[in-house]
């Protein structure tokens, strides 16, 4: 269709107007969707994760986990975590089917008993393996799980960022809200503040060492979570990223937990 000059000029006049009239919520959602969109199509990824837990006296303990993630179209991702350290939990594996809107499904495999246990999906806010990361911090970050709002643009450590507030939709979340800094160039999370149900700042997450994989996917080498009241912190160190390895749904079945190594 050929646009009439009238409609064309109306569009010209109106488009900046619509941009201006966009609410902070719409803008927030748009930025979150763009960030999500840029990470689409990874298919599957395997990564080795070293967790370093430190208390306020500087005492450290280590967890070694291999995680496999499968991208699922139209729903949340499927993920499997396989523990190799501490040695007493070696072989323990956790399987999660995240969903965009309904509760996630989760199973735990106990190798000594050869038993697969269903875990209640309500356990969102509990600490993962005694770390400063809650289950919900580590699960697949679907756009639909939050209400977004753009707060401001800000320069963070010399990087131009969008600052968004997101409110978890799930009432079981341990957080009232989160504030997230995304760099304008690549929409990568630089920093995130977590506010508890009483709206006080309890944790701050910072990302460092972003690397580009397969010319599309940015992943941080390190994520540090600092708990402000307790002084404890957990450092996640990621290594050996492998994208598009050909994992299939059958590699994420309940039965596959028994084969997880």
């Amino acid at each position: 269709m050929k646009l009439s000059p009238l409609i064309f000029s109306t569009l010209l006049i109106c488009s900046p107007l619509t941009a201006f009239s966009q609410s902070a919520e719409e803008r927030g959602l748009e930025i979150a969707q763009e960030a999500d969109q840029r990470d689409n199509g990874f298919q599957d990824v395997i990564v080795d994760l070293k967790m370093e837990l430190s208390n306020r006296h500087g005492q450290k303990s280590i967890r070694q986990i291999k995680t496999k993630t499968l991208e699922v179209e139209g729903d949340g991702d499927k993920a499997m975590s396989i523990f190799s350290e501490p040695r007493d939990v070696k072989g323990t594996a956790m399987l999660t089917y995240t969903h965009k809107t309904k509760s996630d499904d989760q199973w735990l495999y106990l190798p000594a008993l050869k038993r697969i246990k269903r875990i209640s999906s309500s356990n969102k806010s509990g600490p993962f393996m005694g770390s400063e990361f809650a289950y919900e911090d580590l699960s697949s970050q679907e756009v639909e799980k939050y209400q977004h709002k753009w707060l401001r643009d800000e320069t963070l450590n010399g990087v131009e960022t969008y600052v968004l507030e997101r409110i978890p939709v799930d009432k079981k979340s341990g957080y009232r809200r989160q504030v997230i800094w995304l760099d304008k160039e690549h929409y990568r999370m630089q920093k995130m503040d977590f506010y508890d149900r009483k709206n006080s700042l309890i944790k701050t997450l910072t990302a460092s060492g972003y690397q580009l994989y397969l010319n599309q996917f940015w992943r941080a080498d390190e994520l540090q979570m600092k708990n402000h009241p307790s002084g404890k912190s957990t450092l996640l160190h990621f290594s050996n990223y492998r994208f598009k390895t050909g994992l299939k749904a059958k590699d994420f079945s309940r039965n596959s937990l028994k084969r997880a190594r």
Partner: peptide
Amino acid sequence: FEYSWYGLFESATD
């Protein structure tokens, strides 16, 4: 049945 309370008394205990 099993019924769980997560984060008992604002601690990490379940």
